[in-house]
Amino acid sequence: MKSNSKLEKILEGGHFAITGELGPPASANPEVIRKKAKYLRGNVDAVNVTDGQTAVARMASWAACLLGKEEGLEPTVQMTCRDRNRIALQMDVLGIAALGINNLLCLTGDHQVFGNHPTAKGVYDLDSIQLIKMVKDMRDEKKFQCGDDMDVEPRLFIGAAANPFADPFEFRVVRLANKVAAGADFIQTQIIYNVEKFAQWMEAVRDRGLDRKVKILAGVAPIKSVGAARYMQTKVPGMDVPEAVIERLKGVPKEDVPKEGIRQCVDIINQIREIKGVAGIHLMAIEWEEVVPEIVEQAGLLPRPQVYQA
């Protein structure tokens, strides 16, 4: 094993993994994390904690991860290149590993103009691929980016994101191959509503044999309202929400839309499980964490596997 990660053990054990997501508050209130953790514990194998998602200043991912760990979660730190240069990134990588956090997801990050501090100076000293490579070299070669040696390496299970729907489509698999070559151990994808297009992407992934080199977790998320679906369809760059998805939600009375959204999410999970090379799902019920137990249960994915962790 490359790390002491529960997620790594579950994936290596051949189980169909589920990861969840938790957004830290834009405040110093630890109770928010504790409350959300309740819905996730026991229902998912690991939990991504976002890093200033949509470029809004929030509690640091590593700190919220530590709170989640106290609540019995297996946390995954998300780390973006937007706010830190290579010095700060490496300092955080060392700190995270020292705190006993085992998983790290390397991201470029949403551009600062989207957030609540649009006048901030973006950093982007590295991009996500260079970040993956840097963390891998720290772990496997015990080397800092500059080439200096360290004595105790950060034993982290390294993740990366992939968007099967962003343009240019043909190039998306090349980019995934680059992430794998850089050192990604697992991949979490953009939220999938267009299962057909995702299946096409997976076919290209399998053609290159990438599904055997990296564990691919397919992103899913329940939709709460027709308005939210429309917003994702038209306003979120790199999202693909087919009209049929919205039609299905429109087909039920307004008060039943959330229930239908949950059923739709379960259906998508079931379809995705049929696709060869998918190692698990990444369930993003952001600000709707309370429905996670229901979705996982309805998808027949309980109880979660138990693995030994030192």
Binding site: T108, D110, H111, D127, S128, I129, Q130, A161, A162, N163, A166, D167, P168, F171, R175, N178, Q190, P237, G238
Partner: peptide
């Protein structure tokens, strides 16, 4: 340097 990011649309 190793683009594009996931936001290209």
């Amino acid at each position: 340097l190793n683009g594009p990011c996931g936001g290209s649309s």
